[in-house]
């Protein structure tokens, strides 16, 4: 009897202790989610919510001339980030694990871009990508005798190059995670493989990569979610151009809300982005689960 009572007390204490943090979660995460849905179904002047209009806002956003471009580009960012941004850290992790000299220096060096604030990196890359003779990359190419390139203005390259800048910033920190994972691989595995006659390449593909696979799987969905929300990189670099070649869904949402004062439209777009991501997460979970079975 006494035991049960104290158990309840503990419950109460537990909830009391969780309460402040839960309020914060409610305010920053959960309530805005529902508020967005409500806003998206009403029209509004500034932040005043007026009449219920059903799905009008959704229709309007879908009919916007920029929507298709933003939608397509956002998937394009995600795909390119899976090609470039996802594989580079794995490569870095594997290759730096193979050094014994200056390993600390390499770790620090590749992590350094990660501490540089994102906005600053974008301004810096902006001047790297300047076409014409005075762009930093073109200066370097010029020294090598190569003619200046158009960089971001070549619309085939706009998105991949923006993904490169994002990878430059974030690959180092992800690589460190892979390195920690790799160094935790038991030496016995390698020894056994060597005895079986496995060469270095075989060991990479049969031991190292399978060992980091589960980590890589977790990072995959986190990467998709974060790249799907790409906003300031194309905004600062090219303002979404040239001719919408780099505009993203989040950028369009920002424009609705903060440039056109159309908070209902922005909220409708937010809800759509959320739904897309929930579908993607669901698909991912289904796929990974069925593989495990």
């Amino acid at each position: 009897m006494v035991k049960k009572k104290s158990f309840k007390r503990q419950d109460l204490w537990g909830w009391l202790i969780m309460l402040p943090s839960l309020i914060l979660f409610g305010f920053y995460v959960w309530e805005p989610l529902f508020e967005n849905v409500r806003l998206s179904l009403h029209n509004s002047i500034r932040y005043e919510v007026l009449d219920f209009v059903g799905f009008d806002n959704y229709r309007r956003v879908l009919a916007s001339p920029d929507f298709i471009a933003a939608f397509r580009n956002t998937f394009s960012y995600t795909l390119w980030s899976l090609v470039i941004g996802y594989l580079v850290p794995i490569f870095l992790g594997i290759i730096i694990s193979e050094t014994v000299h200056m390993k600390g220096f390499f770790r620090t060096g590749i992590y350094f871009p990660n501490i540089v604030p994102g906005i600053a990196t974008i301004w810096i890359w902006n001047y790297f990508f300047t076409p014409g003779a005075t762009g930093v990359l073109n200066i370097i190419l010029g020294k090598l005798g190569v003619a200046p390139l158009e960089w971001l203005n070549n619309t085939h390259w706009t998105i991949p190059l923006i993904v490169v800048t994002m990878t430059w910033k974030s690959a180092g920190s992800t690589a460190l995670i892979y390195m920690a994972n790799i160094s935790a691989i038991s030496p016995d595995l390698y020894e056994a493989a060597t005895i079986d006659g496995a060469g270095i390449w075989k060991r990479i593909f049969h031991i190292t990569i399978p060992s980091v696979f589960s980590l890589a799987k977790t990072l995959l969905i986190l990467q998709v979610i974060s790249v799907f929300q790409i906003l300031y990189e194309p905004m600062v670099l090219k303002n979404g151009g040239p001719n919408n070649a780099s505009i993203s869904l989040m950028m369009l949402q920002y424009r609705y809300a903060f440039r056109d004062f159309d908070f209902s439209g922005g909220a409708a777009l937010s809800v759509m982005i959320c739904i897309i991501l929930i579908i993607l997460s669901g698909l991912y979970m289904k796929l990974t689960r069925s593989k495990e079975d």
Binding site: F25, F27, Y28, V29, W30, E31, P32, L39
Partner: peptide
């Protein structure tokens, strides 16, 4: 609670910005 917290990892935080800013 833990499940709710973990789900919030999957919610695109920046899509909340409009409603959050309003609040």
């Amino acid at each position: 609670v833990f499940l709710l917290v973990m789900w919030s990892l999957l919610i695109p935080s920046s899509t909340n910005i409009i409603a959050l800013f309003r609040n």
